[in-house]
Nucleic acid binder design. Structure first.
Lengths: 221, 221
DNA sequence: TTTCTTTCTTTTGGATCCAAAGTAAAGGCT
DNA sequence: AGCCTTTACTTTGGATCCAAAAGAAAGAAA
């Protein structure tokens, strides 16, 4: 069971997200090390990384505990992503979209149409959407002209419920999710329009609203 | 020379900010450990922390290097703080300001008036302003009802040029800086007004503009 | 002379050990 | 019996050691 340093952080992240360690539980270095079959050293390194990511927090004088998240935290994390992606989009609009970026946008928008054009969703579509959605957002963030915004978003996305991929929740009610993705696709296309038109204020507002799909639209669609 | 784990990160942060290690320079664990008079272990831990903070980045397959920042990075870091503090302020406005928070705001605004009322700046005023300014911003961020926003801002503030404290730059031209702080004070008071009036949109806009004082107002004031 | 390969050096990752700090527990005192 | 003190145990922080990987340098072949 080889585990390079970053891999340990990933494993721990997954264990926490999967609820293997309940929120608020205290994590001992020794215990975690034993569970992963490694020594304490890489665990200690991973703890520092996870602490910065906000998944762990210091438990008093000694050790770490799994951070507890309130509903307000979830809402805020989504809003944080909204304002940051909004900032990235506005900068891109103000700076201008290159022809290559334009093509990439069109490619991922086309992919989105492909998923939705048949009028309903199947299981595989969810993974397709997650991927194209990720690429679309990544394209905006990476085109903002500075890694600082990308970093801030990336750090925020370490909170599992904050990432853009968390749009699709309920795999049971696919017909219900279809309308959600339909709206998300509409957002994508509006955002693309605004970007190429250089409408900074509008694209920022659209991005911010787009981020809220996961938490404020569920009961309405 | 005792150096607890977090202290090592602080020391390294300071060394980097002071330009002791030039941007782009590769940092060896052994070398840094020797300079700080400690062993490699705490240095390795600190590197992971600094990496997450964005001050270090991985140098290829092996080791870390001091991250290089462009002008765009500086600008973005300030804008990131602006949108995040703006989000925090809007949430506070929408949620309502408690009477205790109101008193604290009034206290720090009063402190600001004290600094500026005599009509000019002296050396000591700078430190006073940095402190009251910090408290004012901290009050907004911590009142947003979720640690997630505070964390995001805190992480961004690890970039030295991004922190709100970086408003005062030139200690030589104090008369020049006076007008800047005068405007900042005006912002603070407008922000306070909007907050207590529940004007979410306005206070968000004000906070965002307020963040830009450090980079967009210098040549105009 | 250039390039590919092999060897050697440097540096990092992981494991283990020791000391120090924290916490829990036991015992003594009021 | 309750509380304080002292003791024992647990857990973390730092140092050192070893192995593996990356990089550099040297040597051989074309």
């Amino acid at each position: 069971m080889s585990s390079s340093n970053q891999n340990v952080a990933s494993q721990l992240r997954k264990l926490i997200e999967d609820g293997h360690y309940p929120q608020g539980e205290r994590l001992g270095e020794e215990a975690v090390a034993e569970q992963l079959g490694i020594s304490r050293t890489p665990v200690r390194l991973a703890f520092r990384t996870l602490e910065q990511e906000g998944l762990l927090k210091r438990a008093g004088k000694r050790g770490f505990m799994v951070r507890e998240f309130t509903d307000a935290d979830v809402h805020c994390a989504v809003e944080v992503r909204g304002v940051l992606e909004g900032l990235a989009a506005r900068r891109l609009a103000e700076h201008g979209v290159s022809s290559q970026q334009r093509e990439e946008f069109e490619f991922w928008i086309h992919k989105g149409r492909e998923v939705l054009d048949k009028g309903y969703l199947v299981e595989e579509d969810i993974q397709s959407w997650i991927e194209l959605n990720w690429h679309f957002h990544e394209l905006i963030v990476c085109s903002a002209g500075s890694g600082v915004i990308a970093d801030a978003i990336s750090r925020n996305n370490h909170l599992p419920f904050a990432a853009a991929a968390s749009i699709v929740i309920d795999k049971g009610k696919l017909s219900h999710e279809y309308r959600k993705l339909q709206l998300a696709q509409l957002h994508h296309e509006l955002i693309f329009q605004s970007l190429v038109n250089g409408e900074g204020a509008r694209v920022e507002m659209l991005m911010r609203e787009h981020a809220l799909i996961g938490i404020r639209y569920s009961e309405l669609l």
